[in-house]
């Protein structure tokens, strides 16, 4: 192979790598941690997670700074009006082009055992771990729950 050919090949390989990295990007927006009422050491984090990717990725775990425990949970309600909250053990799939919505009354990150009570305006660092994308660091702003509830 000529020098020019080798250079061209190297360039192609480099570009492929850059494109591959660039083609799997996790984004999170509208993310927040609910300010817990006084005396309460449990709360939840919410947000909209997107994957600019070709293949489906999976959110497998979450670590929230300063918390004893943080887990993926789902609040579900049946037609009988009974609500239940369950841990999601297998992670949550994120398909290309379909945002994963964590919201009050649905999927959320349950946070337990925050040492000091977070207040609106505080910022809490967290790491979201994805099967493909690996660890993604996110800073969650703390906010009081909006008055209109789920419609917000």
């Amino acid at each position: 192979m000529t020098v020019a050919g080798q250079l061209a090949l190297a360039l192609v390989l480099l570009m492929t790598r850059v494109m591959a990295e660039d083609s799997h990007v996790i984004g999170i927006e509208q993310h927040w941690v609910a300010e817990p009422p006084p005396g309460v050491h449990v709360t939840a984090a919410y947000g909209v997670i997107t994957c600019r990717c070709v293949a489906t990725d999976r959110l497998v775990s979450v670590a929230v700074g300063g918390a004893v425990m943080s887990e993926l949970h789902a609040t579900t309600s049946g037609g009988d009006g009974i609500v239940a909250m369950r841990r999601i053990d297998d992670g949550i799939d994120i398909r290309p082009g379909t945002p994963l919505v964590l919201e009050p009354g649905g999927l959320h990150i349950m946070i337990m055992g925050l040492g000091e009570r977070p207040r609106a305006g505080d910022r809490i660092p967290a790491t979201l771990v994805f099967e493909e994308a690996g660890a993604v660091d996110v800073v969650f702003p703390v906010a009081a729950r909006p008055a209109a509830g789920m419609e917000e």
Binding site: A44, V83, R145, P146
Partner: peptide, 17 residues
């Protein structure tokens, strides 16, 4: 219940509003 991280505080905020 107060140890409820998601639906109870959401409901309380709604009722208050």
């Amino acid at each position: 219940f107060t140890y409820c991280p998601d639906i109870c505080p959401t409901t309380l905020v709604q009722v208050a509003s």
